[in-house]
């Protein structure tokens, strides 16, 4: 249909929290359920869509992911999988957290899945003290409480400090 071809060429503008504007092809933006719903309702693609919680660095990453997934045909799943693992490789925790928050806000399920899994894999097999350090989590247990919780699950600490 003529209208759908026309739609494919449409672009929309996203604005990051730090004021940078990104021109995005509509089919790429549709990877995000949030943007899809906005476009399905009255929101005109001529408007600038503000994303007040997502900074430019994160948004650039998110859009890179969306473009790759929008452009790849469904037959290239293997290629997408290797893109996904390469995409997150060497990413620091702060960037991963920003990515998870952005994917959650923009409702990009595939990206949320891989970023959350990457963080979970970092936790696996690490002592809890190290997990606290990596994630900057404050230990709010008293020494007595911690000992009690530990006693409850002795076996999980075999071989751990």
């Amino acid at each position: 249909m003529a209208s759908s071809i026309e739609n494919n060429n449409e672009k929309l503008t996203l604005k990051s929290s730090d004021g940078e504007e990104f021109l995005v092809e509509k089919h790429v933006a549709l990877q995000s359920t949030l943007l899809q719903n906005m476009l399905d309702s009255d929101c005109s693609s001529a408007d600038v869509i503000p994303l007040p919680k997502i900074d430019a660095r994160t948004l650039a990453l998110v859009l890179g992911y969306c473009k790759k997934h929008a452009d790849a045909s469904s037959s290239k799943q293997g290629e997408l999988n290797s893109f996904d693992s390469e995409f997150l490789k060497d990413m620091d925790m702060g960037a991963l957290f920003n990515l998870v928050l952005a994917a959650n806000f923009m409702e990009i399920k595939g990206l949320l899945d891989i970023a959350a899994q990457k963080i979970a894999d970092t936790i696996k097999d690490k002592p809890h003290q190290e997990v606290r350090e990596i994630f900057h989590v404050e230990n709010d247990y008293t020494p007595e409480e911690e000992a009690a919780v530990r006693e409850e699950n002795r076996w999980a600490f075999e071989g751990f400090p």
Binding site: V100, L101, R132
Partner: peptide
Amino acid sequence: DLPDDIICNILVRIPDIKSIIRCNHVC
């Protein structure tokens, strides 16, 4: 900075029960 539901979404992906139990002790 992550909301509870995202933290839960992360923890639930840890594959082995032993690591999950140690996460009990983080906070």
